[in-house]
Simulated scan of single mutants.
Amino acid sequence: MSAGFNGFGSAYFDGDRPISEEVSLHIANQNLQIGLDDGSTLFWPVKDIRVLQDGADKNSYSLRLITDPLARLFVTDKTLLGYLPNATRRAPPKGRGRLAAWAVAAVAAVALQVTVLVPLLADRLAVFIPPAGERALGEATFEQIRNALDETGMAPLAMCENPAGVRALAQMTAALNAGEGALEGLSVTVLDHEMINAFALPGGFVVIFKGLIDQAKTPDEVAAVLAHEIGHVVSRDPTRHALRSAGSIGILGLLFGDFAGGAAVLFLTERLISATYSQKAETDADTFGYARLEAANVSPAALGTMFERLRDEHGEGNELLNHFLSHPSLGDRIENARAAADATRDYAAILDDAAWADLQAICD
């Protein structure tokens, strides 16, 4: 294919100088040959030439080469368009491979920050937070959780404060938080919610949902869960988890926005309620809980008994089981709890029948 065109009125801008030069145009061997004043010739592949759509002059049009972002060719001979097969086609984005590589690198950088750097920094910072600051963090988070879980939108989720039930809960807490290593300022609260769960917050707060008490068959099962959560408080696991969540919220907020208000509260609430700690943290909390139960003359096997019944009745998708499950399998947790009990020891219930009835009615 070979064709010549009227060069009159055809002007070429190289993009480096603010002046144009008149050129001659010829098509041969699938190239638009542009003859310049100095005798040299430019070769533009016809498949790579595009028409710019922003021209105001209806009697002429401008062309560009997709591989040259600056050069322009202004043409008046419209028959040339018939030789340009891709004249009106959108040019492929330049540097797609580089763009994809940067996108992958950005995602990897965010993942590294959220999964590695933020947890590492949180673990280092947790030990420097003073007790008063940790307590304030726990109080603020507790109120956020109460507001987030309220289904009416009118008031925070109610705390269960039946006096007799509160006394029974205090009796149980005192039995588990006694002797050497007893925590100062340990605060255990029951929230009036059907969720079968319990969790710890920074600053010595442990929250038990009414659904857990309703599901328990004995006070020892509630005590076993409480002892485990006290173990997390002692190890300051909730503080580390809260710092990790806050760091993740900050990073995600920079990317997606809306993490300074309600979304942040809901995200942090969900993370703390369903907190899953590392295998070591869970194992340490279990071991701590067994020791506290033994010291209170309560069988550690109660934790395994509750786990097994919840698994049989609700499957492993139960909230409490999901909360407790980390790397150790549920079967191993059940067996470990039973193995921690002394088969030769005569254990006693942590509450008598009357106090247990009071605890079950704490939300009435």
Rank of each mutant, 00 (worst) to 15 (best):
T269Y: 07
S329P: 02
R345T: 10
L359V: 10
Y290T: 00
S299M: 03
T283E: 00
K280Q: 15
P328E: 08
P300E: 06
T305I: 07
G317K: 11
F307D: 04
A301M: 02
Y347W: 05
S329E: 13
A285M: 09
G331C: 12
D353I: 13
F288K: 04
L303Y: 12
T287D: 07
S326P: 08
H327S: 11
E282Q: 12
A354F: 10
A301F: 03
A357S: 13
L293Y: 01
E319S: 15
G331Y: 15
A343D: 12
G331V: 14
G317Y: 12
T283F: 02
A343S: 14
E294M: 11
E319M: 09
T287V: 14
A355W: 08
L272Q: 08
T305S: 11
Y277H: 09
D286K: 07
A302I: 14
A357M: 04
D284I: 10
A301Q: 08
S278Y: 10
A281D: 04
R271T: 13
E316P: 00
G304S: 06
L351F: 06
R271G: 09
A281K: 01
G331E: 14
F324Y: 13
K280I: 13
P328V: 15
L320G: 05
G304E: 07
A340C: 09
A340N: 01
F288N: 06
S278T: 15
N336D: 15
A339R: 14
T344P: 01
V298N: 04
S274M: 10
H327M: 08
S329W: 13
R292P: 05
L325K: 15
N322P: 04
A361C: 09
A341I: 13
E308S: 15
A361W: 03
A340Q: 02
K280M: 07
E270R: 15
S329R: 12
D342R: 09
N297C: 06
P328F: 11
I273T: 05
G304W: 06
D353M: 07
L310E: 00
L303A: 11
R309T: 12
R333S: 07
A275W: 00
L320E: 05
G289R: 01
E319C: 05
E316R: 11
L321W: 13
L310Y: 05
T287N: 01
D352I: 12
